[in-house]
């Protein structure tokens, strides 16, 4: 697990300082931190709480309420599999089983090589082309097991292209 170093701390402080006067600043701040650091470190909570004159518990309550927010660093790539009605009716359960087997991890887990984190999601708004998954920021529709395997292979190939 990556440490919450001085640089990350400073980044959180800057984000909080910049956004704390917005009305309802908590969510924008949490989003900004997660966008910048991939997750919200436990040590960031007291900085956010202090900036907003709220308690650690309140910030913790908000973070845990929204499934979107992570408290552990994600893998290099995040794959979300939709489990909502339309996708289920188009076979997402079978896809889900395949995904877990292929990656060797369950939901909310990260593969041992830190490459892929797997998360469930409830509707990506792509029902017409179900079942859907999201790979990092990209939604992919009509996913079959073989299409999924192809996607994962592409990911790992990219991973090897060290820039």
């Amino acid at each position: 697990m990556t440490a919450f170093n001085e640089q990350s701390r400073q980044q959180v402080c800057d984000i909080v300082e910049e956004m704390k006067d917005l009305p309802g600043a908590m969510l924008p701040i949490l989003h900004a931190i997660q966008d910048a650091q991939g997750y919200i470190h436990a040590d960031a909570v007291s900085i956010i709480a202090d900036g907003l004159a709220q308690s650690r518990a309140e910030v913790h309550g908000v973070i845990t309420f929204y499934h979107h927010f992570r408290t552990t660093p994600p893998g290099k790539h995040t794959i979300q599999v939709c489990r909502a009605e339309a996708c289920q009716s188009m076979g997402s359960r079978q896809l889900e089983a395949h995904v877990k087997e292929k990656l060797g991890i369950g939901f909310h887990q990260t593969s041992a090589d830190q490459q892929v984190s797997l998360e469930p999601v409830y509707c990506l708004g792509n029902c017409a082309c179900a079942p859907s998954i999201q790979v990092n920021d990209d939604v992919v529709g009509r996913v079959t097991p073989s299409k999924f395997d192809q996607l994962v292979d592409q990911l790992s190939t990219q991973a090897l292209e060290v820039k």
Binding site: G125, N126, A128, C129, S132, D138, V139, V140, G141, R142
Partner: peptide
């Protein structure tokens, strides 16, 4: 849009 992108 999302769906077109999701389909390549």
């Amino acid at each position: 849009d999302t769906t077109a992108l999701a389909m390549g």
